[in-house]
Design a protein around this nucleic acid. Structure first.
Lengths: 211, 211
DNA sequence: GTCTATATCAAGATAGAC
DNA sequence: GTCTATCTTGATATAGAC
């Protein structure tokens, strides 16, 4: 009996490694080309296996995208939790606005490095399947809740504009994670990543108008 | 000879009407579903003709999209020219920042009404063909130049943040025309169009942070 | 369990009748 | 000039050998 479970465990680990390779490939392709332009052939090639093998682990292209989106949300949640832990250690020296700015910068940097899968534009066939994906929805709601707490706090303290609905603030932060402006500035090739992040952060929180 | 030219002119007008019906249909579909999800069958159905007839007037799906994008840029240029005329009449009472805000609101309202075709996300097969489309590029550059003049003026007068590169300001205004936040707020169904426009305009120019 | 080869299908594009 | 019917292609998904 021991050998059997050991063998099973090894198999599971191998399978897990292959699954992760696939998810990484999907993530990169979603970030660079988007869902529609991504083909399953490309995913298989990049993950180093035949397409049929891939379909043993994931039953559809939509499921592939779902797994990559879940992984991206997990990274975001990890980052947010890291910030919370840091803030707890710093004993109140880090306010919620700084944390929101840090998440925004992290998301934009991920985009610049080709690691942030693009949000499904509404009406895509993808968005329907994502909304039916429990793992995805759970993570999305968890992330929204954690950001929502910071937003409410920042508004209550007068750091974020209290006249704006919290919903708009949340959506805007999500939108920055796949803001085309970031990619356009990078494509122009004249600026460093730090400049781009500083400017877009400034534009997001302080606005385009002079203060 | 007269009858022939008269007949030809009538034919041309009929053709033109049909072309416009097609462009309107493409525009609506691009605004609601995006390029990839839009099918030529849908376009033909919505324009009220067979697909083969449509292909007599436009040689490819990419050309369809190009024509719709050109029409959208022409609407934007018309609106901008209208603002310039108005400002000329008002004798300096309307400053460039107000004009930029007005264009932004107009673009977002067009989006809310399903009349603003979505910008091609980079790396799309569409963006390559658009960059090879002279009519499109001419209008795009013309619009960028006119907005660029307002931007430079507003920065020189200290109305727009002079620390931000003009390129970022321009890209940001274009991005607002297809900002997913606008659609998400509308989808929530709780807000009027005016509220949405006011809030997103405020977020864009004044920032999310309290002033 | 993995791969080669193939089925299936949707969508862009066209032929040919009228 | 317009339409019906068809071609063609590219991509998702699967069958079956090993």
């Amino acid at each position: 009996m021991e050998p059997m479970t050991a063998r099973a465990s090894i198999r599971q680990q191998l399978q897990r490694v292959r699954e992760e390779a696939i998810v990484v490939a999907v993530n990169r392709l979603l970030a660079t080309k988007g869902y529609d332009a991504m083909t399953v052939d490309e995913v298989a090639a990049e993950a180093g296996m035949a397409k049929a093998s891939l379909y043993k682990l994931f039953t559809s292209k939509e499921e592939l995208a779902g797994a990559a989106m879940v992984a991206a949300l997990e990274r975001a949640l990890d980052f947010v939790d890291g910030l919370r832990a840091e803030a707890a250690r710093s004993d109140g020296a880090i306010d919620s606005l700084s944390q929101l700015k840090a998440v925004t910068r992290w998301a934009m940097l991920s985009q610049l490095e080709g690691e942030m899968p693009a949000l499904p534009s509404q009406n895509s066939s993808l968005s329907a399947s994502l909304q039916a994906n429990d793992a995805y929805m759970d993570k999305l709601i968890a992330l929204s809740n954690k950001l929502g707490i910071w937003i409410a706090d920042a508004q209550a303290r007068g750091k974020l504009n209290p006249a704006l609905p919290a919903e708009l603030l949340l959506y805007t932060l999500f939108a920055r994670a796949c803001d085309p402006v970031v990619g356009m500035l990078k494509a122009s090739g004249q600026y460093t990543n730090k400049q781009i992040l500083d400017w877009v952060e400034s534009a997001t929180f302080n606005g385009l108008a002079a203060r």
